[in-house]
Design a protein around this nucleic acid. Structure first.
Lengths: 212, 212
DNA sequence: CCGCCCATCTGACGGAGTGTCAGAAGCACA
DNA sequence: TGTGCTTCTGACACTCCGTCAGATGGGCGG
């Protein structure tokens, strides 16, 4: 049922799976090198050393191949999501936040090209990318919303604060800051300083403990 | 010197300016309807009711036309940037933050399609889009960094906090949350609640005044 | 009002990418 | 080695790209 299929719907065997995988790797590589707007099905075929017809045997178009890459992200990010589920209260919590932010930043660095297309197409209201973005975001959101709610119950965060919006804002910071890092470093803000600051903002916004 | 030119470098007259403008409007419309990956030069030409050759007289390719649209953003956003320059301390400051967040959200809603490509191409390290992103971001960053620094001087924000990273994180929230709004509303978080929460996070993170 | 001039526009074209299909090639197994 | 199924691809029709020479048109001096 969750077997991988060709464009005509046929379930594919071992050899074909490998071909499909090589096409996906080539797509990911070209995406990294040339950006989302410039990847052509024919480039991918050339890169793999196969005929364009083979590409279309597995994917309807380039976007479809990128979508397949995006489908792999939720699984890959799961270990990091788990880190958001532990209790972040107290000074030890700040350490957990640091680790989580650092790992998420690394994850972005490794998967930036695909993540950018995932977010773009979801923002552009493409339903299937939206579904993946939901699957990807949901565990982060659930964990962070729970932290805010429990801080609100304990009276450390005011009720006027919306837990979802807070979680969304923090996720936004995590998703965009890796893209700004190069610019920051040019102006003297190191990766470590960035992680330290975001970890503190995250920790403080989610637990209601003072910032510092 | 800053006259608009055709692809061959020639300065263009009134009639041509209007054609160019119609091409830009059509590009913006198709970008909104179909997303960045699907806009073809020929679609734009059809939309304008002109020959593809005319398109290429003004722009090297579709990305070049979107770039021209992006060039108009810094100017359009300037009034909102000004709002970030006033003093946000005290409870009146929270009102200013609310207004700024609300206006910036409206700006995003109006220019989302172009902004997404601007950020995408800049994230993908395209130098000319990066330059525009810098021009666009710099006033926000400068104003927010100044707020954090002055709060640090007053002892309301700890020195371990990096002012640039804080400003970046807040800008990230402002840039991504409009894209999440539809999802939020489906789950019960209204535009107003979102703005209220982001305004408070912004106000608190930048001034060091308590969150609530 | 004419005809000229030059800015602007476009038909037409060679080249590249898209997407499909029928059949060739590869592979496992008898 | 032959058979049958899976996988791959040459070849094709089509669309889009990007360029150029020449057509068009509108403003202006006569």
């Amino acid at each position: 049922m969750s077997d991988t299929t060709a464009t005509d719907g046929r379930v594919i065997g071992e050899r074909a799976l490998q071909t499909r995988r090589r096409i996906l790797e080539a797509t990911a590589a070209l995406l990294r090198e040339q950006g989302a707007l410039d990847v052509k099905a024919m480039d991918v075929a050339r890169e793999v050393g196969t005929s364009p017809a083979t590409f279309y045997q597995y994917f309807a178009d380039v976007e479809d191949a990128i979508f397949a890459l995006a489908l792999e992200l939720p699984e890959k990010v799961a270990p990091i999501q788990t880190q958001f589920e532990s209790d972040w209260s107290g000074p030890a919590g700040l350490d957990l936040a640091r680790q989580a932010v650092s790992d998420y930043t690394d994850f972005w660095d490794e998967n930036a090209a695909v993540l950018r297309v995932l977010l773009l197409r979801a923002d552009e209201r493409d339903e299937r990318f939206r579904q993946v973005r939901r699957d990807y975001n949901a565990p982060f959101m659930t964990a962070m919303v729970a932290k805010v709610r429990s801080a609100q119950d304990a009276g450390r965060i005011a009720k006027v604060i919306d837990a979802e919006a807070t979680a969304g804002a923090m996720l936004a910071a995590l998703d965009r800051l890796p893209n700004y890092r190069e610019g920051f470093e040019k102006r003297g803000t190191s990766r470590e300083a960035m992680i330290e600051t975001v970890a503190r903002l995250l920790h403080s916004s989610l637990t209601g403990e003072p910032l510092s």
